[in-house]
Design a protein around this nucleic acid. Structure first.
Length: 789
RNA sequence: GAUCGAUUAGCUCAGUUGGUUAGAGCGCCACAUUGACAUUGUGGAGGCCAUAGGUUCGAGUCCUAUAUCGAUCACCA
């Protein structure tokens, strides 16, 4: 053995050794595997398919691999299933940036072409993440690798949608949703980023209809859609304003009459106690409008421009329209209000506003017909079922009080908008009936001459055939009233062929047809989380035939606490819905990885750690150990070069202690071999007995910590006991002659086993070295047995 | 406003069901070192465990309140 451990050389060699031995496969897959044994399973959180590795990936690999290796050594039928995620909006966003550099945009393509292009792009990059995860030493079973757009995954996910629809747990409705005019899609409530900002609060005068010389004043942050407002509201019990109920005022812009209604959502204390209702663009107003059956007039379109009804403001952006509207109101004067209809502007008004988590722009609440999952149906409440699983302890959460946060989410969850107006994803398997509804469907499509056309279908059909439109279809919006059929294939076509034979990932949509079309397809795709939510079920149902019965519910779901509501909660909801059982017995939530000073990592701060550089410089073992040691579920972990260096030194310490012991064995003439203890039987000398007893205590402690998922503590204990007890005390005592070589070897073997889950490369490399002179040892450390306490 | 965390050495953090003199890494000081390891060894300095109460034979650990920091949710035009 060399005097220094060379991680660069060893890591490559050792990983290949494991792969060649199929060491990552569950024992039930191997010949003679006992399927009756206890199983242990982890589903890897699938990284974005074309995302390069970041430190968060290294964190989950370190923890999940430690657990996987521990249970594998314990003799459990162990599997860790890897995969990658198509990451709908993220990936499309990245791809669109790329298009922009080429002077193009998503509007230059029909949806099928764009989908195929993105697929090719992702395929090109998708091996990157996988190979990087391998460099970290992940003992995941790559033969079970799954991609979220694999044909069988798509089939499964669309199947779940059909089942939800059959159970009346999915519906299409016109609802106000958060829409990003830049990204061109709506989001669910979870994806909205609320940020504090300073904005202007405009106090606008509304003239009384019966006497325009009198007016009332109310405050608004959004004057630009005033032209579309038809009603004001006051609180029914507010003494100051109750006399206004039923009265009429004039719209400041259009002079149309507006009625003042009563609704108790109005806060009498805020502003003047009077609020204007803009049902199409405010969540409270939308709800009020539904209660009072008010018209919903859309003032802002999906591009963020004023709609045609805005007259002179039509086509203006919100910001430009706001300035124009305010200017116009200020010039609308009379003797009673010489400064116009704006009483004052508070430019230092603090409020919170919803922004796009992806691009950061202000989201526009828009009424759109979308598909929703009913999460709290009376008879089949998905959220209640998840809460029950928590109550019964069938899923336990490790992570600093985060179970309470999960419960809070489950108790307050709203129906889940799963429609996304993007191409990159699984198309919602729905077709809209065209005949008789041409006026209620708007489409955009690319003509055979590569021209973009958009408009109401009825108009477009005058110049284009439905076949042409279908072939070049880019996006379709159907009114809430248009009937639809849930089906992957065009329901108007002959379906004599076996139903699902054509669902093949990339080409699952928009088949061009020969026969007369009666339907056009939905162009929206599922929220990525809708498929992710089914991940533990999907990965086990689409791989080996017995996987589901063997490994479901999975043992541990390990992921970052930041995606607790997005992913963990939804996996519980969907997993329980599909299978009737929780998808995982335990949730282990790791924290954010921060820099050495405890600062959040960000590109702008320049403190981002690239895990591959650390692997190169200090070794994967050092990186893993630094991330795991003394880490606590649910709390953030800070690391820096000093930590990686310390753990690199530790791996070298392990190497050298092993080397010393190996040298004693090879070299019995060495002076220390002449000591007395050497001649005694294993563990019978007094020093030996103390040693063995302490070793047993440590082993029991580590084992318990691992089972209790206190892996940060287990790693810390191992570090201290190995270095400061085994090396500093025991090896020195051996040199003094009070501990025999035999027990020292025994101790080394135990430590190598226990260190292996954390530092797999150096321990396996040493094992192979030891085995070179002692072939009675098990062939590989990775598949050998965890020491008995 | 509500909820959930955190507060321990100069810095970053562990501390298992309450149980002797509270630990690690990094940093600091002194010394050592040709035979496992300088990616080292030995020794050392450094802590009212945020504050105030309480429970207990005993509290860093359990309870209550306060303060500070952080996260999340709700926010009203």
């Amino acid at each position: 053995m060399e005097s220094r451990y060379d991680h660069l050389q060893a890591e490559q060699e050792i990983y290949t050794l494991w792969e060649d031995a199929h060491a990552f496969a569950p024992s039930s897959d191997r010949a003679g595997g006992d399927t009756a044994q206890k199983s242990f399973s982890i589903i890897m959180p699938p990284p974005n398919a074309n995302d390069p590795l970041h430190i968060g990936h290294a964190m989950f690999v370190s923890i999940e691999d430690a657990l996987t290796r521990f249970h594998r050594m314990r003799g459990d039928n162990t599997v860790w299933i890897p995969g990658t995620d198509h990451a709908g909006i993220e990936t499309q966003f990245v791809y669109e940036k790329k298009l922009k550099k080429q002077g193009k945009s998503r509007f230059d393509f029909d949806r099928q072409t764009l989908f195929n292009d993105i697929m090719a792009y992702v395929k090109e990059n998708s091996d990157v993440a996988v190979n990087q995860i391998k460099k970290l030493g992940a003992s995941a079973d790559w033969s079970r690798f799954t991609f979220t757009l694999d044909p069988d995954v798509v089939e499964f996910v669309t199947g779940t949608f059909k089942r939800l629809a059959a159970d009346n747990l999915v519906y299409r409705d016109l609802q106000l949703v958060n829409f990003c005019v830049n990204c061109g899609t709506s989001f669910s409530e979870l994806e909205v980023n609320h940020i504090d900002q300073t904005s202007s609060l405009y106090y606008v005068r509304y003239r009384m209809a019966d006497n325009p010389k009198e007016y009332i004043t109310l405050a608004t942050t959004r004057p630009e859609p005033i032209w579309a407002d038809t009603h004001l509201a006051v609180h029914p019990d507010n003494k100051k304003t109750m006399h206004l109920i039923g009265k009429k005022v004039l719209n400041p812009l259009t002079d149309a009459e507006m009625e003042i209604i009563a609704d108790d959502f109005v806060d009498p204390e805020f502003g003047t106690g009077i609020v204007k209702l803009t049902p199409a663009h405010d969540f409270n107003d939308f709800a009020a409008a539904k209660r009072h059956n008010l018209p919903i007039i859309i003032a802002v379109d999906r591009r963020g421009k004023m709609t045609d009804g805005a007259g002179k403001y039509a086509g203006m952006s919100s910001k430009a329209a706001r300035e124009a509207v305010v200017a116009d109101l200020q010039t609308k004067t009379s003797p009673e209000y010489p400064d116009g209809l704006i009483e004052k502007i508070d430019t230092n008004y603090q409020n919170r506003i919803g922004t796009c988590y992806r691009c950061g722009r202000v989201l526009e609440p828009l009424p759109l017909p979308q598909f929703f999952i009913k999460v709290n149906a009376e008879k089949k409440s998905l959220t209640q079922a998840a809460l029950k699983v928590l109550d019964e302890g069938k899923t336990i959460v490790h992570g600093a009080g985060r179970e309470k946060i999960l419960r809070h989410w489950l108790e307050n969850l709203q129906d889940w908008n799963i429609s996304r107006q993007i191409v990159w994803g699984i198309r919602i398997p729905v077709w809209y009936e065209v005949s008789g509804h041409e006026e209620k469907i708007t489409v955009s499509f690319i003509t055979a001459q590569k021209e973009l056309k958009q408009g109401v279908l009825a108009e477009l059909l005058k110049e284009h055939s439905l076949e042409e439109i279908a072939a070049g279809l880019q996006q379709l919006f159907a009114d809430n009233t248009v009937p639809y059929t849930i089906s992957v294939e065009d329901p108007s076509e002959d379906q004599s062929a076996s139903t699902n034979s054509n669902i093949k990932g990339a080409k699952n949509t928009n088949q061009t047809t020969k026969s007369k079309k009666l339907y056009l397809p939905e162009t929206d795709t599922f929220d990525t989380w809708f498929s992710s939510a089914q991940w533990p079920v999907v990965t086990l149902k689409t791989n080996k035939p017995d996987d589901f019965s063997r490994f479901y519910p999975t043992t541990v779901m390990e992921t970052g606490y930041d995606i607790l509501p997005f992913w963990v909660m939804r996996m519980m909801i969907m997993g329980i819905y599909i299978t009737g059982q929780t998808p995982f017995s335990e949730v282990y939530l790791h924290g954010l990885v921060r820099d050495a000073k405890g600062q959040k990592m960000s590109k702008s701060k320049g403190n981002v750690i690239n895990p591959l550089e650390i692997v190169e410089k200090f070794g994967a073992d050092a990186l893993r150990m630094a991330l795991v040691i003394r880490s606590t579920p649910g709390l953030d972990k800070s690391v820096g070069d000093q930590d990686f260096k310390a753990m690199r030194n530790f791996s070298n310490k392990i190497w050298n202690a092993s080397r010393f012991i190996a040298l004693q064995d090879e070299n019995p003439s060495h002076e220390v071999a002449t000591n007395q203890a050497e001649t005694s039987e294993l563990g019978t000398g007094s020093g030996d007995a103390v040693f063995m007893e302490k070793l047993a205590t440590i082993t029991a402690e580590i084992t318990k910590n691992m089972l209790d998922r206190k892996i940060g503590l287990a790693a810390d204990t191992l570090y201290n006991e190995f270095w400061h007890w085994f090396c500093d005390e025991c090896i020195e005592q051996h040199k003094q002659g009070s501990i025999s070589l035999k027990v020292l070897q025994e101790g080394l073997h135990a430590f190598l086993h226990m260190l292996h889950p954390f530092m797999p490369f150096v321990t396996e490399k040493i094992w192979q070295e030891l085995r070179a002179t002692d072939d009675s040892l098990p062939e590989q450390l990775i598949t050998s047995s965890w020491p008995e306490a």
